[in-house]
């Protein structure tokens, strides 16, 4: 039923994703791959588990520390039993006060991160203010939900979103399920094939108000632990100087943790461990 009286145009929502879906649907992930392949597959068993031909495997984690939130991810991408890439970036700065990390199929993952950061920038430019932390988290949930047809084909994208809430002056962590369900975490979370292993370590080592040095150490340890237990997760590689991607999100915005810092912390950890054995 059409309501009488004037109505605002849908364009007034300032959403780039909405604009794209309306005017250039071929550029959104879902309408490009979603429907046609799904129809072709309809006579196969969609629910039957089978090895996915797409790049998979990952550990990404986030937890709160004294100044805000830390978010980190390993660098490995796999294709079946092969390593496809060992310098992959899975943690992205999405705007001045937020970042996201992604687990799942590489292509759609990177694309979602890219679209989401354009979405935030677009809103900021159109409305003249940044979205609230809550608003960003909800918007990401809707984008994950829009991705559901791809999930049915095995192209799963599971993000982990962190933001510094400038109004409440706290760092916040949000996790998602494949249907776009959004759940806020109070302390820590990790996702991906090695997510459980990282989470077990975080459960042991996480304390409230860790300083940023300690937070970097715990994050690195959790990722290294996951890499030891999970084939889809790559550990630190001092020879090629490949270290996890790590970002701190706090009042000052989003800062990268430099490779030099990570290399020093990693050497200390190795040194301490070798003494114990």
């Amino acid at each position: 039923m059409k309501t009488p009286g004037p109505q605002f145009s849908h364009d007034s929502y300032s959403s780039f994703f909405h604009f794209l879906s309306t005017h250039q649907p071929d550029l959104t992930p879902v309408s490009r791959w979603g429907q046609p392949i799904l129809q072709q597959q309809s006579h196969y068993e969609l629910s039957a588990p089978r090895p996915s031909p797409f790049t998979h495997g990952t550990t990404v984690l986030a937890f709160k520390y004294e100044q805000g939130v830390i978010i980190a991810g390993d660098r490995r991408a796999t294709e079946g039993f092969q390593i496809a890439e060992n310098r992959m970036e899975k943690v992205f700065k999405t705007d001045d006060y937020s970042a996201m990390a992604i687990a799942g199929a590489a292509g759609p993952c990177v694309e979602m991160a890219k679209l989401f950061s354009i979405e935030l920038e677009h809103y900021e430019k159109l409305d003249g203010v940044q979205l609230s932390c809550e608003g960003k988290a909800n918007r990401l949930g809707q984008m994950v939900k829009a991705n559901l047809p791809l999930v049915m084909q095995g192209l799963v994208v599971i993000p982990l979103f962190v933001g510094y809430d400038t109004k409440r002056s706290v760092g916040r962590i949000f996790k998602y399920d494949i249907t776009g369900g959004r759940y806020e975490e109070t302390e820590f979370h990790s996702v991906g094939s090695g997510g459980k292993d990282a989470r077990l370590l975080l459960k042991e080592r996480f304390k409230k108000n860790l300083d940023h040095q300690a937070a970097i150490r715990v994050a690195l340890l959790a990722l290294a632990n996951a890499a030891e237990e999970d084939v889809g997760t790559g550990g630190p590689d001092p020879i090629r100087r490949i270290y996890p991607t790590m970002k701190l999100v706090n009042t000052q915005g989003v800062q990268d943790v430099e490779d030099d810092t990570l290399s020093t912390v990693w050497e200390e950890l190795i040194h301490a461990r070798s003494k114990e054995h």
Binding site: F16, L27, K114, I118, H122, K125, L126
Partner: peptide, 14 residues
């Protein structure tokens, strides 16, 4: 202005 931002963001993505 809005049309310009949409045009620019779309072009940057493509």
């Amino acid at each position: 202005r809005k049309a310009g931002i949409q045009h620019a963001d779309l072009k940057g993505l493509m």
